[in-house]
């Protein structure tokens, strides 16, 4: 019962926020609605028992992709109102694409109902008893230990590469020099003057 309720909740919110992505006037709001859609899609994934994909959706899409979107939208000075002005002109084309996508979905579903395309050689899915995050973790640290560690080295190379190719120490950089700051005495820096009334101070 609760699962059914949750499904309708997540599904409705996904569709509603997806619609709002398209119709929001402000592009920043669009991206925020997109994040809501991602969260709800992750909820749907949880309901089907694919908790790993759910987490991935939150971490990768919400954590990285959507934030990147937000940056781009905020940085680029795009006049979205002008972009939208051609809606009526492009409507037939948009409807055509929507029709093609719908046809593809129908064909894909009916093909799926007709049975698998290639039966032989398909790897068996993991047993239901093990949650799939646990199963993946187990595989990653046992059978795929070596490729996993090497993937870490690849990331290290990416970091070193980024630094080597972009970093340069500039001559005019103003770094804090703590020892110089501490060694500075008041005598060197402060001059106390007692000016007479009506006369200026000599600096």
């Amino acid at each position: 019962m609760i699962a059914l309720l949750a499904f309708y909740l997540f599904a409705t919110l996904t569709i509603a926020s997806a619609v709002l992505v398209v119709f929001a006037r402000n592009p920043v709001h669009s991206v925020l609605w997109l994040i809501v859609a991602f969260f709800n899609a992750a909820g749907l994934m949880l309901l089907t028992g694919a908790e790993f994909i759910a987490m991935l959706l939150v971490i990768v899409y919400v954590g990285a992709v959507a934030v990147l979107f937000l940056f781009v939208v905020m940085m680029l000075d795009i006049d979205f109102a002008q972009l939208r002005s051609g809606v009526t002109r492009n409507l037939p084309f948009g409807l055509l694409i929507a029709l093609v996508l719908l046809a593809e979905i129908v064909i894909a579903v009916s093909a799926y109902r007709a049975g698998p395309v290639f039966e032989r050689g398909a790897a068996a899915p993991a047993a239901n008893a093990v949650p799939n995050i646990e199963a993946l973790g187990h595989e990653l640290y046992s059978r795929y230990l070596l490729p996993f560690e090497l993937a870490g080295l690849i990331l290290l190379v990416a970091m070193i590469g980024a630094i080597v190719l972009t970093h340069r120490s500039r001559g005019d950089g103003r770094r804090q020099n703590a020892s110089r700051q501490i060694a500075r005495r008041p005598e060197d820096a402060v001059k106390i003057a007692k000016p007479q009334v009506g006369q200026g101070v000599e600096l």
Partner: peptide, 9 residues
């Protein structure tokens, strides 16, 4: 990939 990525840099 490990070999090529270092090579690109």
């Amino acid at each position: 990939e490990l070999q090529s990525l270092s090579a690109y840099v």
